Simulated scan of single mutants.
Amino acid sequence: MKKVFKTASEALDGLLKDGMLIAAGGFGLCGIPELLIDALVASGVRNLTVASNNAGVDDFGLGKLLATRQIKKMMSSYVGENAEFMRQYLSGELELEFNPQGTLAERMRAGGAGIPGFYTQTGVGTQIAEGKEVKQFNGKDYILEEGIFADLSIVKAWKADDTGNLVFRKTARNFNPPAAMCGKVCVAEVEEIVPRGSIDPDHIHLPGIYVHRLIQGNHEKRIEQRTVRKREEA
């Protein structure tokens, strides 16, 4: 099966439809599938539900899809540094399903493992628990959280071979593996595609069985918050 495509638009061809659920990897600006997001913007697909830790910043990553009003609902851990995300949510223009960060990651991982739901103590007694089943285990309350089964996963990795085995670099590993697992179809963008067999099996973070399509591209290295010390006088 051919997995390598020339462009992000080609890799997404035939996969998009209005109203779909997309799981997007990354955290802030780290490890986000920026090229695939740009292709989603260009496609014009609308009424999307996007499961992602947050929506980056206003002019980059998922922030671009918010700016074009292509997202109707976010499933996220926090609003983050995106002013437009906050504005749309507070004005009632955007639906938002808050998830504790670990719960969101586990919901994705559970979906990828075929697990429809799991019980967790996180969120018990808070707004997170409203409307959810509560069950006791060993005398303690747990709430039922559902696994996420996305129509499409878009993720960013550092390296891949042509079979889709992925290696993530440092903190870019964050949400990318569970996001990749939970999609019916997973499209990954990488910085480098290497020959088959050249990646040590012990270094593979996500097996190619989860990855259906691949692109290689050039990526912008942004820093979300730059903090430096004042220069000391000589």
Rank of each mutant, 00 (worst) to 15 (best):
A150Q: 08
V45E: 08
K159T: 05
G123D: 11
F168V: 11
S9P: 04
L214A: 13
D38K: 06
K3Q: 12
E233G: 10
D162L: 03
D13F: 06
M181D: 12
R173A: 03
E133N: 15
P178N: 15
G31P: 01
F27H: 06
N218C: 08
I128T: 06
A160C: 02
V79Y: 09
G26W: 05
N176R: 07
R87H: 04
R213S: 12
T103Y: 03
N138Q: 15
G31M: 05
L144G: 14
H205D: 10
G19I: 00
N54K: 07
A157N: 08
E81I: 07
I71T: 10
V185I: 14
A157R: 01
E192F: 04
F168Y: 12
E233L: 15
T163P: 09
V134W: 10
E95D: 14
I71Q: 14
G114C: 11
K73Q: 04
I22P: 01
A55S: 05
V134P: 14
N174G: 09
T7Q: 10
G208Y: 09
I32Y: 04
K6T: 11
R109N: 07
D200C: 13
F27T: 07
L12N: 08
R231W: 13
V187I: 14
A113N: 08
A234W: 13
N138M: 14
F5K: 03
L90V: 01
G114V: 10
A179Q: 14
T122S: 09
P207V: 03
K6A: 11
P178V: 08
C30I: 09
E133Q: 15
L90S: 02
K2P: 04
D18S: 06
I148S: 08
P177C: 15
P100R: 05
I199S: 06
D151F: 07
I128L: 05
K64N: 12
L166H: 01
Y119T: 07
E189R: 11
S153V: 01
V187L: 09
G28K: 05
K132E: 15
A83L: 07
M74E: 15
Q121F: 02
T122P: 03
I154N: 07
R109H: 03
Q136M: 08
E191L: 00
A39Y: 06
L36G: 01
G197A: 15
I204L: 04
G102K: 02
G183N: 13
T122Q: 14
I215L: 13
A67W: 05
A67N: 12
Q127E: 15
H205K: 10
D162K: 11
E220A: 14
K159D: 02
T126C: 04
Q101L: 06
R46L: 04
Y119L: 12
E10S: 07
N47Q: 01
G63T: 04
K221C: 10
I204N: 12
G56K: 01
N138D: 09
Q136K: 06
R109Q: 03
L144R: 11
T49A: 06
G111P: 00
R229G: 14
